[in-house]
Amino acid sequence: MTLRGSLSHERYCAELLAETDRFRALVRTGDLAAKVPTCPAWTLADLARHVGGAHRWAGVLVATRATGNVEDEDVPLGDGPEGDDAAALDAWLAEGIEHTVRALREAGPEAEVWTWSPVRRARFWARRMTHETAIHRADAALATDAGYALAPEVAADCLEEWLQLCALPEMAARQADADDPLFGPGRSIHLHATDTAPELNAEWVLDLTGDRFVHRRSHEKAAVALRGPLTDLLMVLYRRLPADSDRVEVFGDRALLDLWLERASFE
């Protein structure tokens, strides 16, 4: 598996900074005690600490060219400042992402570094942290009643990355539950973005007809189709938007789509 993205390393670094700036704006102006509806165990302050801690952890991995995982307690200032002061959290987020992006740029995309995926390169972290931040910005937007949008090429790459991650071997056991089979003849899902330029090729087929998940960019008939704006399709796959939302349309075997959404998770 390549887990290679469609954007350049520098574009990921720039998007990571921009996404963090947008996330920080929501933290600065939002109610830090507000519950995050898509992460119900967290407040907005908890979400900010999670995002900032992930940035600093990835930054340490890249900066040190780690050959193995780095424990949370070994990440300097990984827990963030004491208390829930918006200005302090904002400054901590800003400092952490600056260090992380600097480490990514200095390392370059092909520097060897530990990851939890088969791809042991710094480019994995540039892409992963970009999309991690983008999805959690959606969580913050929901917690603060703010608008949310992603550039189409970023949203498409985020969706593609999620499908690539879902094809990793560690996902196989969750997907292949014998009591309620996900795989079998004729079982497929078509994702169709309705708001993008043709050159973006924002259509995917999730092929479940064999004994493992594969996907491809294609316009094909499938057992179930999910249609809607690209960012909304992404939010459905990440379970930030329900599949019965009026922002998307489902045609065909809705139970198959629901089963996929249940199984395609690292939780």
Rank of each mutant, 00 (worst) to 15 (best):
S6H: 07
L7H: 03
S8H: 10
S8V: 09
S8P: 14
R11D: 11
A14N: 14
L16C: 13
L17R: 12
R24L: 10
V27R: 03
V27M: 01
R28L: 15
G30I: 06
L32D: 12
A34Q: 03
P37S: 05
T38V: 03
P40Q: 14
T43F: 03
L44K: 07
A45F: 09
L47F: 08
G53Y: 04
A54N: 15
H55G: 14
W57Y: 09
G59M: 04
G59T: 06
V60Y: 07
L61M: 13
A63R: 05
T64E: 08
A66Y: 04
T67D: 15
V70W: 01
D74M: 05
V75W: 02
P76A: 00
P76W: 01
L77Y: 14
G78V: 05
P81K: 06
G83L: 06
A87D: 11
A91V: 14
W92Y: 06
E95M: 06
E95G: 14
E95P: 09
G96E: 00
T100N: 12
T100D: 00
T100F: 02
V101W: 09
V101Q: 05
A103W: 03
A107N: 04
E110Q: 14
A111Q: 15
A111C: 13
E112M: 12
V113C: 07
V113P: 00
W114R: 10
R120K: 15
A122N: 00
R123C: 11
R127P: 09
M129T: 13
T130Q: 01
T133P: 07
A134R: 08
I135Q: 13
I135D: 10
R137V: 11
A140T: 10
A143G: 02
D145E: 14
Y148K: 01
A149T: 13
E153I: 02
E153R: 15
L159D: 01
L159Y: 01
E161T: 02
L163Q: 04
Q164A: 15
Q164W: 06
L168S: 07
M171C: 06
R174E: 04
Q175E: 03
D177S: 07
P181S: 04
P181D: 02
F183I: 04
F183G: 02
H190E: 10
H190R: 13
L191G: 00
H192F: 14
A193G: 04
A193R: 03
T194P: 03
D195E: 12
T196G: 07
T196L: 10
D207G: 13
R212A: 14
F213W: 10
H215W: 15
R217I: 06
S218C: 12
A222L: 03
A223L: 07
R227K: 13
G228W: 00
G228L: 08
T231S: 11
L234D: 00
L234Y: 03
L234T: 12
M235P: 02
M235S: 05
M235D: 12
L237H: 04
R239M: 05
R240Y: 04
A243I: 09
A243T: 10
D244I: 01
S245T: 04
D246V: 12
D246C: 05
R247Q: 12
F251E: 15
D253F: 00
D253P: 00
A255P: 06
L257Q: 08
D258F: 09
D258S: 11
L259F: 05
W260Y: 15
F266D: 08
